[in-house]
Amino acid sequence: MTTEQRTAEGFSYTLERTLETPVAAVWSAWTTAESYARWAHAAPGSVEMDVRPGGTWKATMVTPDGGRFPLTGSYSEVDENRRLVIGMDVPGKNEPAVMTVELAERGADRTRIVVAQTCDTAVERDLAEQGTTMLLGGLTAFLTTAD
């Protein structure tokens, strides 16, 4: 399910999925550098994560055509197995782009994940939403094949 809206602060989107895996496995995939690199289209060895409020992260993402671009950011909220608020540094902007990831148990082996972000323009929102849709696809495939 996808929702889009324009707010006073900008243009936002929310993506929601139900994954057939426990919350702890989803949390681990999102917060462990080795796992994240495997599903998030990151260059091997490029992911570093200090998952705590004020901690930083970095990764070099690889596009389908082989292009590479480095990303950096920080964590402003970390509530294990429930919520991550992730800032992503954006060249030329004073404030990071902020993505919120919320997890909720849906029975013993199912997790509802909701990812939301607000962007400055509709174009930025559309690009961010496309990237997040790819991330969720990669996460779903990873969790389906993970041991």
Rank of each mutant, 00 (worst) to 15 (best):
S12D: 14
S12F: 12
Y13C: 02
T14E: 09
T14R: 13
L15H: 07
L15G: 03
L15A: 05
L15C: 04
E16S: 15
E16L: 13
R17C: 05
R17V: 04
R17T: 03
R17Y: 07
R17K: 14
T18E: 12
T18Y: 10
T18F: 08
T18V: 14
L19D: 01
E20W: 10
E20S: 12
T21A: 11
T21D: 03
T21R: 13
P22I: 10
V23P: 02
V23Q: 01
V23G: 01
V23S: 02
A24G: 13
A24V: 15
A24W: 14
A25I: 09
A25D: 12
A25P: 09
A25K: 15
V26H: 10
V26M: 12
V26L: 13
V26Y: 08
W27E: 08
W27N: 08
S28P: 11
S28Y: 08
S28K: 15
A29L: 10
W30P: 01
W30E: 03
W30H: 04
T31W: 05
T32H: 07
A33P: 01
E34A: 15
E34D: 15
E34V: 15
E34M: 13
S35D: 12
S35M: 10
Y36G: 01
Y36I: 03
A37P: 00
A37Q: 07
A37H: 05
R38W: 06
W39T: 01
A40R: 01
A40D: 03
A40T: 00
A40N: 06
A40C: 04
H41P: 00
H41Y: 11
A42F: 05
A42M: 08
A42I: 02
A43S: 08
A43Q: 13
G45S: 09
G45M: 08
G45E: 06
S46H: 09
S46K: 09
V47Y: 05
V47H: 03
V47Q: 02
V47W: 05
E48K: 14
E48L: 05
M49I: 01
D50P: 03
D50F: 08
D50Y: 10
V51F: 07
R52G: 00
R52C: 00
P53T: 02
P53E: 01
P53N: 02
G54C: 06
G55F: 06
